[in-house]
Design a protein around this nucleic acid. Sequence first.
DNA 1: CGTGAAAAGCGGACTTT
DNA 2: AAAGTCCGCTTTTCACG
Lengths: 140, 140
Amino acid sequence: MLIADARTSYAEIGAKVSLSAPAVKRRVDRLRSSGVIKGFTTVIEPAAVGWTTEAFVELFCTGRTTPAQITVATRRHPEVVGAYTVSGQADALVHLRAADIGHLEQALERLRAEPFVTSTRSMVVLSRLVEVPTPVPAPN
Amino acid sequence: MLIADARTSYAEIGAKVSLSAPAVKRRVDRLRSSGVIKGFTTVIEPAAVGWTTEAFVELFCTGRTTPAQITVATRRHPEVVGAYTVSGQADALVHLRAADIGHLEQALERLRAEPFVTSTRSMVVLSRLVEVPTPVPAPN
DNA sequence: CGTGAAAAGCGGACTTT
DNA sequence: AAAGTCCGCTTTTCACG
């Protein structure tokens, strides 16, 4: 219920699971401190705040590039909203969000300038078909 | 502030921006109805709920495959947490989350069985380096 | 947009199971 | 160890100016 709406009251959750509001709060607190719940966020429509362009970029890196290096490098670029080391030909996959194509090009140029990047392969997103904010665990 | 913590009180936000709590609520309500704010969610650690494997899969499709077709097909698979039509060799990029490699293999098999899929190219995620839940608009 | 007031929700302390 | 109850305090949400 908190995935569907992070502002759901403890009493309302309690009504669904037959628990008192304080009991629900204690459980949520426990989920937070045990790291299951990482936090509560707001889902924004990127286009509504001027971010209309999105791309996935495969990174090909020099022989001894560590994941840590890629992490610190990609974090420097505000356009990076996701980065993963992957199996396959590429070493990493980077998810970029930019204001427009010009901005994307510029961000990509900066990314390619990183010393360990040997080449890249870009996929510009034409349309977002599906995007689940949080993976919902299968209900029992 | 609601991106950083969706449960921040209106009074606290108001203190930061010099506005009364009701004024903040009215603005948030307006952002919701205008579609800027799509909702409030909880960020879960997938591994904590048993989803330890992740992959990005490029989809190569038959000549006349529509985005709508890909949308309905991918939505049928609960492992799909993201899907995008893209420029480049591939027609679409699909983000999958599964319990383990076996589950991922099975999900991939099901995806490949879709009639319009001619071939796929998978990148299994080795480690998640960066993941921003919501793209934070640059502060002025 | 601010104010003030009513209703709802939160988060302790304490008791019970 | 975890749930329930009680209760003061905060937050939400409304009507009004």
